[in-house]
Amino acid sequence: MDVEIKIKEDMKSLGCESDMKISLAYQLYIHLVDEKLMYDTEYCYNKDVDTLYVVARPRKNEKLNIYVPIRTYDDISLDFINTMQENLCTVESGPSINLAFIEGDSTIVIYSFTKGLVERPSAEKISENRKKEERRSFINSELVRHRSEILHDALNGGVIDDDDCLVLD
């Protein structure tokens, strides 16, 4: 039996039903074994996130690294990365996850993401910061637009109309 067919059948027996995910995981597995010469390379399946991934050690005595195969044209969000980290990372592997982007010509580029280096702001905080920045930008543009008037009024003491003033008793 052909090695590729045997490995792909073994991946399918783990519970993965997607031929695309199996094909990507197989390409990544072969890349890590044959080209990167990694140690203790194994493929795994997590049914909670329906993900077929590979674990391997870059050097004999290092910790296991997690590699998730992704097509280069798939949209990846911070929520996706966070979900993968929460479901795949273990005490043995640590808080890092590697996304292996695989191109149609079998080119593989690997990016590492480590949880906890920078706190991710919540969506509400991002929206709040964006509104503050927009308001600040608006105020700055108004100040620039009315600069000459502001300077003129500041240098000449300004003029206040009686209609604008409220007399308090």
Rank of each mutant, 00 (worst) to 15 (best):
F101W: 03
R59W: 05
L28G: 01
C165L: 15
R57V: 02
Y29K: 02
K60L: 13
E35K: 12
I70V: 15
I139W: 10
E134N: 13
D40P: 01
E62K: 07
E86Y: 05
V49C: 07
Y67A: 00
R145K: 15
L52Q: 06
I70R: 08
L117V: 14
E124R: 11
Y111S: 08
K12D: 09
A123W: 05
E86D: 13
E103N: 11
E124V: 10
I5K: 14
M38Q: 02
S106C: 11
S106Y: 09
Y26H: 14
N87K: 10
Y29W: 09
I97S: 00
D169N: 10
K21Q: 14
S127Y: 07
D162E: 14
D79E: 14
L64K: 02
R130K: 15
V167A: 05
R59K: 13
S112A: 13
I81N: 01
T90I: 03
E103A: 15
D40N: 11
E133F: 06
D153G: 08
V167H: 08
A100S: 07
V54F: 01
E42M: 08
V118Y: 12
A100K: 00
Y73G: 07
S137P: 04
P58S: 04
V3F: 11
T51Q: 09
V49D: 01
L37A: 05
V3S: 08
L99V: 03
Q85F: 00
S77K: 01
D50M: 10
L151D: 11
T107W: 03
